[in-house]
Design a protein around this nucleic acid. Structure first.
Lengths: 331, 331
DNA sequence: TCTCGTCTGCCAAACGTTTGGTATGAAGGT
DNA sequence: ACCTTCATACCAAACGTTTGGCAGACGAGA
């Protein structure tokens, strides 16, 4: 920067202010000229030195359990985009499930002096990483909330409700659920929203009609097969995620039940193939990019010393052929 | 750190050396004691200040066009893991397709003084971002290579060959290709490998048998429909990605051609659902996590002043029901 | 007991910015 | 012509580490 200053015939401090566009202290013409000069010579001010001086790195940390799950990937894209829009960069660390990895990851980020951290890797048991609360770094939860802590989450309860209303509306009274893992806040909320509405309509959802499974296709298949094995023949099935739903549909097929005619099937997450399946799958669509964007905005506001409110992003149900028909009255 | 030094009754410089484990200058016992003390008081040395002094940030930059494509997500996970293993952090920026965004992203990373950059967003036209070559930051290409520049790439040519050999082996002579976008180096290589082997076997692959499409399911459907619309009835179809293949299978279904019996179908990338489709899909499996890992290792070696070689990671073909049968002799 | 060698720890400069305080010059009002 | 006011630019300290150069202490050999 000193070199640039000499080139421009100015003091470094003036150049610094000019580069940061401080119009209250530097003439507009000078700002313009310095900007030009910097561009010509490919000069990029050293963000590290600036960070040391100002105490702000303009970097946000993000904690996710995985990047290969589309849901997280979408949120991460939203985060990255919004961050860059606001002049920040995102540093993402994959924490997996091990508790130790998690604290180590937090320590790294804190050591890098990130300005704030978005925690998106929490499950039912885990709260905020201990290493994080003891540091003074501002943070919030995203995607999956934790208790009453500050967070930006998808409204999974509402999603469950929407599905229940839809199925009741089409005349279904005999329903079952393929319910995802028990320790995911996600599945808990989706299920409880669904159950609330169903119950209020006077329909029973016995424990034998809810079977838990991991998030994969094969697991959904097995879970559905189990339900059918108990002799159940529901007219509608709510699957707490699309992969599970795809697996479930295969199990139904094996029992000679045709999805979209004999049985209604609704998934969750609206992954890209859902719309293109042989029988297009109804699914709850979350705008996870928006979750990411809002999380960044809230975090920046928190960093600025404000107290942003927690937010929930409403999903919407996309009805397709798999559940678009009305229940057969005779069943 | 000064506080910690007082607490330990030592000089800051000694504490610094102790924390970094410099056994040639600090007694082991002291190292131990300081480490303990730091842990107790939750002290994390300021990486920013260290970076300013040493000129190394211990951060790597990554450029990807998107994170929502599983292929990139997998590679990113590999990068993140290997980086953290080597004491680095990864900073990922999503560049989309706009040229301007790309240079801006590079400028950000260079401004942050990352120690090196992994460029994984190149298409046929684009070389290294101009902002990158003019900076002194070490970089290499990953996933998709560019000319003879240093890179760690998946061997797409080999992937194409494997598919061709497999289909020839099963007796197919009447083949077609759903070929992905024209400007992706990926699709070019897969296609050229495939074409080489096919041609060497004396089978013709006319221009009317290759139709390009974007990477999505719907696009694959349309492309396949176009082929069929021309009156072609190939006994085998190679789809340059799994989404395309899923779309293509629907088009085949519409023409009363059953995948796995009337026509063989092979995809690329082996996404998780491929194994679980009604007719499990044969697909070329890339270990993209490995690509990410190797990219990190090569980059670190480059940073250390060595000259690592370019590398290719070999994929393998996973044969499933969609192409496991032998071609019907009468066709 | 003296000297030499080795191990350990201290001092201070430097990394490249930012920013409050202050000086200089020009313009405008009386 | 003189004073005030405003706009613009300069000086220097500080952010928290790292690291080469030295000094002090301790033990061993003669």
């Amino acid at each position: 920067m000193t070199q640039l200053a000499q080139l421009a015939g100015l003091d470094v401090s003036t150049v610094s202010r000019a580069l940061r566009g401080d119009r209250s202290r530097v003439a507009s013409a000078t700002i313009e000229r310095v900007g030009q000069l910097a561009a010509e010579h490919g000069f990029q001010p050293d963000a590290v030195a600036a960070a040391l001086r100002t105490g702000r790195t303009k970097v946000l940390g993000v904690l996710v359990p995985t990047m290969t799950d589309v849901a997280y990937a979408q949120m991460l894209e939203g985060i990255a985009q919004q961050a860059s829009l606001r002049g920040y960069l995102a540093m993402t660390t994959v924490t997996g499930s091990a508790r130790r990895t998690r604290n180590a990851a937090v320590a790294s980020l804190v050591g890098q002096r990130v300005d704030g951290i978005i925690v998106a890797d929490s499950t039912v048991g885990s709260g905020a990483p201990t290493a994080l609360v003891s540091s003074a770094t501002p943070f919030l939860f995203a995607l999956r909330g934790v208790g009453h802590q500050l967070g930006v989450v998808a409204d999974d309860t509402l999603g469950g409700r929407l599905v229940a209303e839809h199925l009741l509306d089409r005349g279904h009274r005999d329903v079952a659920v393929v319910a995802g893992p028990t320790n995911a806040t996600t599945s808990r909320r989706r299920l409880s929203g669904f159950r609330d509405v169903i119950r209020r309509a006077g329909v029973e959802l016995g424990a034998d009609r809810v079977v838990h499974a991991d998030w994969g296709v094969a697991e959904g298949h097995a879970a559905m097969a189990e339900l059918l094995g108990h002799g159940l023949r529901p007219t509608a099935v709510f699957s707490l995620n699309d992969y599970n739903a795809i697996g479930a549909s295969r199990a139904l097929q094996n029992s000679a039940l045709e999805v979209g005619r004999d049985v209604a099937l609704v998934g969750y997450n609206d992954i890209s193939i859902s719309a293109e399946l042989p029988v297009p799958l109804s699914s709850v669509h979350n705008n996870l990019e928006t979750v990411g964007r809002l999380a960044v905005d809230s975090l920046l506001s928190l960093i600025d010393g404000h107290e942003p409110p927690s937010q929930t992003v409403a999903p919407r149900l996309i009805v397709r052929e798999s559940s678009g028909f009305s229940a057969h009255p005779q069943r």
